[in-house]
Structures are given as structure tokens and as C-alpha cells.
Simulated scan of single mutants.
Amino acid sequence: MSDDVLMFDPITARIALYTEPTLAGDPFDPNSARNAPLNSPAANLPSLYYHSDYDPMEVAVGPTDVLITHTAIPAGSGAPDAATINSQLVYGGYTQDRSLLAHGLPYVPDFLVVVGTQTLHPGYPVQYNALDGRARCVTAYATATEIRIYETGIQTSSVLAAVNVTYTVIVLKRPPAPVGSVLFEFDPVTGITTMARGKFSSNRRYLQIVAGGSPFGFPLGRTIDLANGTFRSVQPDGTIRDVVPAAFKLSFGFGGPNFGPAGNYNGSFTGDPQIQVQAP
């Protein structure tokens, strides 16, 4: 039966916690088959819990809730010869750019943003009307000083009401540079464990994988699919958001409306896997 192993290699200065992928080989040899995750981590990712080569994703800020009041999106005006059953769709006619928080780090950091119980992906529809396709889509991004959101509207002939949205933000810190030569140390006075020449310390906060325990998720593939001229958004829990309704059709020609085929999403995308994490 395979065991969970904490192993280090003084030659490569690597340290890792993993489940042995096989029982073959010398358990005390860092380069044996059973210890392959230590010096061949990329080929043994499913076995790893921690590896000193990889960013442990230390939390620098958050989780922090930020309430944003999004103003109403005005009705749009499309091309005069285009119409739909009930309205027109106008893309890119409304945009806003605003700050969520100042992160206080001396570089552009990695981060996660959650809306409600769902991780915010680029172009996420935080508000939409399923009857005519008007929507508010947001994308979070980082600068050297702030975590910000860029907002764009899909406009119809009707106003999209103002809405208050709470965004929960986690900002991640880059791992520190290794110091000294100690690969593993436990201080019985402080109770602090350090590993990988100070790159990991048990008194810091790191993201932790918790199945079903947190809305923060890392997608392992796509979160949006395009088909028939529009998009489908799939949330981390598998919930599907089709912004453009099935009733949306374009009319063309003269002598009255001659409607074409439905303009809603007609693909089959149901999302890709994701890993749920939480910040302690």
C-alpha cells in the first residue's frame, strides 16, 4: 500500500509531500521510482500535496468583501436597418472601469475574485435579463497598485437597472526567495515549521484545496464558449448562463420584417473541471 511521504533531496535542494505512485524502488533513494514526485514533479502532479518548486500561493490580502454599486446601463441604439423580435442588441456601447481595492504589493499580483458563490471569470455576466439579452459583464484585472474591474454592457432598447454587487477578493503573494540551506525545520518553542529554505512557513496563510468547501475555484479549462455569434458562461459549480435568449432573431430586407434563424447560443459546452480552494 502506498504511503504519504515527506521527502527531501540535499543534492537538488527539493522537498515534497506526496503519495508514492508505486512501491518499486528504495524508499530512501530520492531518485527511486516510488520517490519520483520529488525530482520529477511535473510528471507526477496527481501525487503531490506540496513541492518546493511550485508557488504555494500565499494569501497577502483577503478574503475581503467589496460592495460595488453599478449604475444603470442606458438603452442602446443599434443600426437603423437591424431589428429583433423585441429589441436590438448593442455590444460595446457602455463601459466602466473601477477599483476594487489597493493591494499594497510592489508588483502586479495574482488574485481571485468571487461573486456570490462563483469565481469571476473574464467577461462574467453578473447581471442579465433572460427576456431580451441585456447584460452587465465584468472582468477583473490587476495593476501595479490595484485590483480593478472592467465592465461592459450588452444594451437593448430597455434600461438595465442599477445593481449592488459584492465582490470577494483574495490577493496572492509571490513566494519568497530561498534563504540559507535548511530544507526542513521545526521550532518546538514557536510551533512553526519551515521548509524549502524558508519558502514555506506554517505561520503564513496559503490557499488550500477543499472539495466543495469554498467558492474560490481554479478552472482547469475554458469557462466561456462561443457559438452562433454569442457566448455561454459556465460557473464553477456547473451552472450555465446563456445571456442571449432563444427568442432573439434578426430581421432583414424590405417589405416588412423577415426574420432569420434564432441568434442565441446553440453549442453544447457544459464547462471544464475546476479545483476548489479556500483561504484559512
Rank of each mutant, 00 (worst) to 15 (best):
M1G: 08
L6F: 10
L6Q: 06
T12V: 03
R14I: 00
I15Q: 00
L17I: 12
Y18L: 05
Y18G: 05
E20K: 13
P21G: 11
T22R: 05
L23M: 12
A33V: 04
R34N: 05
A36V: 08
A36L: 06
P37L: 11
P41W: 04
A42W: 13
S47H: 08
L48W: 11
P56G: 06
M57S: 07
M57A: 10
E58R: 15
V59W: 08
P63R: 10
T64R: 12
V66H: 04
L67C: 03
A72C: 08
A72Q: 10
A75G: 15
A75F: 01
A79M: 09
D81G: 05
D81M: 07
A82K: 09
A83Y: 13
A83E: 11
T84N: 12
I85T: 10
Y91I: 13
Y91F: 14
G92M: 05
G92K: 04
G92T: 06
G92Y: 05
G92E: 06
G93I: 00
D97H: 06
L105A: 01
V108L: 07
P109Q: 05
D110I: 02
D110H: 13
V113Q: 05
V114N: 01
V114P: 02
G116H: 14
Y124Q: 12
P125C: 03
A130D: 14
L131P: 00
G133C: 10
A135C: 09
A135Y: 01
R136I: 02
T139H: 07
Y141N: 02
A142K: 12
A142G: 07
A144I: 07
I147P: 01
I147R: 03
R148M: 13
I149D: 04
Y150K: 13
E151L: 10
T152W: 14
T152I: 14
T152N: 08
S157E: 05
S157R: 04
S158E: 11
A162G: 14
V163F: 01
V165A: 02
T168D: 09
V171F: 00
K173W: 01
S181R: 13
V182H: 03
F184P: 00
E185G: 02
D187Y: 05
D187S: 06
I192C: 05
I192Y: 03
T193C: 12
K199T: 15
K199L: 14
I209W: 01
A211M: 06
G213R: 11
S214V: 02
P215D: 02
F216S: 00
G217A: 15
P219D: 11
G221F: 09
D225K: 02
L226W: 11
G229Y: 15
I240G: 01
I240P: 03
R241Y: 05
A246R: 12
A247Q: 03
K249P: 00
F252G: 08
F259Q: 06
G260L: 14
P261L: 08
G263S: 11
N264Y: 10
N266K: 14
N266L: 15
N266F: 06
T270I: 15
T270S: 14
P273L: 09
P273A: 10
Q274N: 14
